[in-house]
Write a protein that binds this DNA or RNA. Structure first.
Lengths: 217, 217
DNA sequence: GCAATTTTTGACCAATTGGACAAACGTTAG
DNA sequence: CTAACGTTTGTCCAATTGGTCAAAAATTGC
């Protein structure tokens, strides 16, 4: 019995796999897993279907690979949230960075949203593992800031959720946002407006208050 | 040439169409438009495929009908935002109602999210029409409150977006939210936690401030 | 009770889809 | 040059899918 040879990757393999993943990102994010076809992906990657299947065993194989690499870059901003930094500016730049990702990598955001929407059938382990671990860890950091009185007391997990929700909204619901804002305010500046708004809402309400905000009535 | 007879709807037609839409809501919200099959929907509705196609001309026909009725109920909370009420409590109950909808009608939320995610190919007219009109109208109401100094000045459209994003997040990303919160805090009370958190964030930052919040450093 | 109408079904179809496979073609180290 | 290996393609297949149709069954109006 021959054991599986891991077989180092060829230069061509590296390149072609890259091409395929890029094309698949396009298709999956636009049509969802079931909506995208191998044919489409292959054509977008400039090769025939059997050729594509030479590099990836199946459609699902492509998707797994895509999600794996995606999650890492997707969680990068949160990973950078630094315990020792100034809480307010740490959170401010986290929000800003997430919003930049929504602007610069909307396909990645939509791919992720698509997967979660359908119940995360293919990446549940990653959610329960890597993602949950990181969130719990950073929630602890935020909790530390609260206990030290450096930001207002609130629910750290839901704070993270709301930052995710508000920033990713501009990628996932892009067509709706643009349709509602109309041609005037729907241009690229919508991200600047969003940045300003989100900063105001989150930062204002998180800054510690030395006196009760609403003394009477 | 016979003109189209509108032909009043039978009792059976009314009932069966209802059954089908209910089943379709299940399937579409879980698998997306392309992911759901007519067979599945028919089976879930307890009838054969040709029978289903006797009540709806096509898969798309079902979807259209579903989206139409959905949008109305979906926008109801915003429609209730009342010009003459107290701004803070109006916004507070808007947020609460939206969160209740995410809790009680998650399928509707996901169906909508699915459609927008893929570029709203089938409901763009409704977005640009009914939805945009309502949002613009209510943004004006909010703007009025700001000008009257009854809430803080900010971007009304982005405020609405952020309320949508944060509340619908608990329906659309439900599996992720539950996975991250874990079995302890992931129960039904997550909605209460969310309500409390969102109220704190939004209301706190919207309440008018009579003095600068951060006088020095 | 019966004819007209509505509802339901089984059988069928063409198109699409994910994937298998063997043969052909390229590349490269010796 | 050539053997070994990597790459590409044309062809094929079985399953799934959206949808049709005529005939059977049920319902309804009188």
């Amino acid at each position: 019995m021959e054991a599986e040879k891991p077989r180092r990757r060829t230069r061509i393999q590296t390149e072609k796999r890259e091409l395929i993943l890029e094309a698949a990102l396009d298709m999956f994010s636009q049509h969802g897993f079931r909506g995208a076809t191998i044919d489409q992906i292959a054509e977008a990657a400039g090769m025939s279907k059997p050729n594509l299947l030479y590099y990836f065993r199946s459609k699902e194989d492509i998707h797994i690979n895509l999600m794996q690499r995606l999650l890492t870059t997707w969680l990068a901003p949160l990973r950078e949230l630094d315990d020792v930094g100034d809480p307010i500016s740490e959170l401010r730049s986290y929000i800003r960075r997430k919003l930049e990702m929504a602007r610069d990598f909307p396909r990645e955001s939509r791919l992720f949203a698509n997967e979660i929407l359908q119940g995360a059938p293919r990446i549940m382990p990653m959610i329960e593992g890597e993602l949950k671990t990181l969130v719990d860890e950073k929630a602890q950091v935020i909790l530390g800031w609260m206990r030290a009185g450096r930001i207002v007391h609130t629910d750290a997990h839901h704070l993270i959720f709301s930052i995710w929700a508000t920033t990713q909204h501009y990628a996932d619901f892009d067509v709706q946002v643009r349709a509602v804002l109309g041609p005037d305010r729907g241009g690229e500046q919508r991200f600047d407006d969003a940045a300003q708004f989100l900063e105001q809402i989150f930062i204002d309400s998180l800054k510690p208050k030395t006196e009760p905000l609403n003394p009477a009535r």
